[in-house]
Design a protein around this nucleic acid. Structure first.
Lengths: 155, 155
DNA sequence: CGAAGATTGTACGTCGCCATACAATATGTG
DNA sequence: CACATATTGTATGGCGACGTACAATCTTCG
């Protein structure tokens, strides 16, 4: 394992894992947004685009669940993407309440570019971090999520 | 406890580590906010309170750096805490531009309660996660932060 | 069938945070 | 000393997300 030595005072005593986690999440958003700015997209928009490209027309509620944001917010995200003709709203033949959000041809092309950006950035982020370390990270975070949900329920 | 083998469907194929990380960070904020609501504080306010309690009067710029938010935002956080008489602004004798944010007696008492809440919650979050796993998590995230910063600089 | 309840998408107000621009003050340089 | 430059805190406008409330529609069950 590592010398975790390098680095000045990487973790001040008052800084707990939770703070580190939040700071890292902020940087994740910042990094993706910086790269996606060239495509005039932010991370949420890019995720939505990727999702409907991969999984086809999807209702807004399902999109909200999958992207982890509220139903209200999804609406405005779709609005903006639709205004740029990257997605379109199709009526659901089985349920007149719902819109199925589908990718357009222009959207598909842009999604491909998003994918490229994504892969490049992800490769950079993996630098110096082994596969099993990433898996361990994912496992611990998943476990942590369970604990967090329990704690929230208990509040 | 468990073989960490289980490995249900921890991550849908389209969900990468970065998404998990963001979702976890959101839950962290939600959990802390839920517990701190009883004290009528959010996580940022509580962190600020804890910091000045532990480290004494601190300039707003330093607080912003340490809490990871902007200088502008720190001002309003301090405003609200000051209105509740939890902190006070003292002039810096060496620099007439800066306010030193200091804890008050009422603030110190509340900070103690924050500490209690904090310890309880943190104990819940550790459930089922070993010490070395937490350390590994912290290490990987620190490394990830470095990569993120490089990526951002490179953008 | 018909009424009660659940679900979908939208409108609206709020919150936390950011980025920018600015006045006041410090600091460095000739 | 005088002047350019940097830094501190604040004001302002914008953005993304949340929570609540609502009309339209589906579903369930008497």
């Amino acid at each position: 394992m590592s010398s975790l030595t390098t680095h000045e005072l990487d973790a001040p005593p008052w800084q707990r894992v939770e703070s580190t986690l939040r700071a890292t999440a902020r940087l994740v958003r910042e990094a993706f947004d910086a790269r996606l700015a060239a495509l005039d997209l932010n991370l949420t928009q890019a995720s939505l685009l990727g999702y409907v490209t991969e999984f086809g027309a999807t209702s807004q509620t399902r999109l909200a669940d999958h992207l982890g944001i509220g139903r209200a917010q999804i609406g405005s995200v779709v609005d903006r993407l639709q205004a740029r003709d990257l997605v379109e709203r199709q009526p659901d033949p089985n349920d007149r309440r719902v819109w199925l959000v589908a990718i357009t041809e222009a959207g598909r092309e842009l999604a491909a570019q998003v994918n490229d950006v994504d892969e490049v950035l992800r490769a950079e982020l993996r630098h110096g971090i082994g596969r099993e370390e990433r898996q361990a990270l994912a496992w611990v975070m998943t476990r942590l999520q369970q604990n967090l949900r329990s704690a929230i329920d208990r509040s």
